[in-house]
Computed example of a mutant assay.
Amino acid sequence: MAHRGRLQSLVSGQVSLERMAEMMAPKLVDGRWRKPELSRRLAAKVRKAWLQDGKEWPFNTKERTNYGGWAIEDLPAVKQKGKKVDRQKIDRQKHIEERMKVMPQLIEEYREKFRAWRRCDGMSPIDKTFMTPGQLRKKQKAQQS
């Protein structure tokens, strides 16, 4: 890790560019990768100090222009995933609006069905006269099944 004195030498330009590049790159030692001597955070501090002094930073990364043989403008469009709720929100709203238009009719059908059940429309007048409400309900359930 770079100490304060070492950081000053990096900022002032006392360290050669080759050595600085070597410090910023990870190293393969005995088949294992080691961290760079100069972390990205400290490299950013050095870069900022260089730019404030009016020096040009020699380690700018070039923008990629070729992605696996494709030019950037020829890359296929990638659909952003996002959350399922967000993707389906518009379709869901349309479905809700359509169902809300039909809602008054559905409510009226339900109420009429319930009123018919309460009036015992499917029963004969004799059953209505001589049966108790509990017996009527049992007979209605038997007829529905």
Rank of each mutant, 00 (worst) to 15 (best):
H3L: 01
R4S: 10
L10Y: 12
V11M: 12
Q14T: 14
V15K: 08
L17K: 08
A21P: 04
E22I: 06
A25T: 12
W33A: 10
R34N: 10
P36D: 04
P36L: 01
L38R: 00
S39E: 01
R40C: 02
A44C: 06
R47V: 05
K48A: 12
D53Y: 00
K55Y: 02
E56S: 10
P58C: 01
F59W: 00
K62C: 03
G69H: 04
A71F: 03
A71P: 00
A71R: 14
I72G: 04
I72L: 08
D74H: 09
A77E: 13
K79P: 04
K81S: 12
G82V: 00
K84Y: 04
K84P: 00
K84A: 09
D86G: 01
K89I: 07
D91A: 15
R92M: 09
H95P: 02
E98Y: 13
E98A: 15
R99C: 11
K101S: 11
K101H: 13
I107N: 13
E112S: 14
F114L: 15
R119V: 05
G122K: 08
S124K: 09
S124V: 06
S124C: 09
P125N: 03
I126M: 12
D127I: 02
D127S: 12
D127T: 07
T129Q: 07
Q135Y: 03
Q135D: 13
K139E: 15
Q140D: 08
A142W: 11
S145T: 11
S145R: 11
